[in-house]
Nucleic acid binder design. Structure first.
Lengths: 133, 133
DNA sequence: CGGAATCCTGGTTGATACTG
DNA sequence: CAGTATCAACCAGGATTCCG
């Protein structure tokens, strides 16, 4: 296991942030929860792409990381609500900036990442620049 | 199949940002490059943990995503320099915030992520709240 | 020097079915 | 409703070796 935790002198705090916030869903869930307390099914409905399994796992991880709080109501139809903790809410600004940046990026770059619709010849797009000074 | 790319109406821009910036290295590399133009070996030396393969891959991905620019000098000992593009430099603030947050998070949470020192009973920590309205 | 090619692993994600 | 269990696929990431 990779430290990121330990006293290795070679990590940078961004790695820590990415370990807590990284992955495909964490920040999306967080953004959802910025809208206020929500229950499992609401979150699920808000993010159709995520599977129940992943949603559970991410929420658990975020809970362990102190980002969300989980409240279980023992009712006949079970109810579980999720809220952001102070720590979680503190990510408001960062989430917002990433969201803005993502939107801006999409707009600038024409809505296509480097995924499936990969531009053919681009690897050697700008081949050689200049000679040595 | 994961879109994030397509015209699915259900993604949020954060996903885009995470797809471009996510992973373990991208932002670390970016942060390194914020210090100015550097060549491959310099980057490698600055991040001893990364393998040459990963560094190459990440740099290529970032290049394709328009974050870094790659300049090849055809010298006898080959030289390749990497710089941030405008787009890349535009991430300065976000990288800084994530870095700050990571540092703060480490400090607050005692320098340990969710790894080893896991709180035992917390799943049902506050077991039952109230009844249904 | 700055990679590319190849092989490999295990952690993460997903689909599906079942349960309290 | 809010999960859990199980199986399977995928891919980030790494080790090693070779190349211009």
């Amino acid at each position: 296991m990779r430290s990121t935790t330990g006293q290795t002198p070679d990590y940078c705090a961004i790695e820590v942030a990415m370990e807590v916030l990284g992955g495909r869903w964490k920040l999306v869930i967080l953004k959802q929860l910025l809208g206020g307390k929500q229950r499992f099914s609401e979150l699920k409905r808000a993010m159709p792409q995520i599977t129940a399994r992943m949603l559970t796992r991410q929420l658990r991880a975020m809970e362990e990381d102190g980002l969300v709080e989980r409240t279980v109501y023992r009712e006949v139809p079970p109810r579980v609500e999720y809220t952001l903790t102070e720590t979680g809410r503190g990510l408001d600004e960062i989430a917002g900036m990433l969201d803005d940046w993502g939107r801006w990026y999409l707009a600038t770059r024409g809505g296509s990442l480097n995924g499936p619709p990969r531009m053919p010849a681009r690897t050697d797009g700008h081949p050689v620049e200049g000679a040595v000074p």
